[in-house]
Design a protein around this nucleic acid. Sequence first.
DNA 1: CCGAATCCTGTTTGATACTG
DNA 2: CAGTATCAAACAGGATTCGG
Lengths: 113, 113
Amino acid sequence: MNQKQATCQHKLMVTRDALEVIQGKWRLPIVLSLTFGDKRFGEIQREIVDISPKMLSQELKALEVNKIITRTVYDSMPVTVEYSLTPLGKSMRKMLDEILDWGVVFRKEVVVK
Amino acid sequence: MNQKQATCQHKLMVTRDALEVIQGKWRLPIVLSLTFGDKRFGEIQREIVDISPKMLSQELKALEVNKIITRTVYDSMPVTVEYSLTPLGKSMRKMLDEILDWGVVFRKEVVVK
DNA sequence: CCGAATCCTGTTTGATACTG
DNA sequence: CAGTATCAAACAGGATTCGG
């Protein structure tokens, strides 16, 4: 399936595409947090402790543009906004798991040593 | 093994560790390029077309510090410097594959559409 | 050939305060 | 609650020059 065109050049291209979404300090943490269930703005902010509302808002927008998450406004009083993963967002699961697994290895080998 | 402490908070921590290495425009591409075999500075530069020598040098150093790659100098004339993945670097393979796989999906769903 | 050193710029990120 | 506005700081990245 993806073993045709598996040249270094081709892989470099795909990596760049993926990096556009993955990149930055906050996007992966946000996606990760949403894998635990739909959340509201404030909930995410409380979970990712040191993110500013500005960054959160900005990164959520970027993720929405890239079709990773959806934003739903409930016209209650006060307004409630919920964020949830799209199918594409959910498809990041395996990747996320591998990153996590490697993070554990890296932590053991380098961070704590 | 990693299902104890698999809370959202714990995962967020590990993600941050991994992100420190993964982050930036060039690190993953560099590591990817080295999965195809040991390479010299110039070879990497020719493969990752639009990287400047400064960035390449800088990112190679960072990867070395994090024990992802090793730098070997051969005292030939002129000097030759070879970069290769450490075992830790090689352990990124699965993660890299998943990122690649997801990159393909993302490209199909968003980039080209 | 393999970089190091310097300088410079624009983008990213952050702190803080404020609004519907 | 769910953001926006503003201003400042940090950093990534590029251009150029230089050396062993």
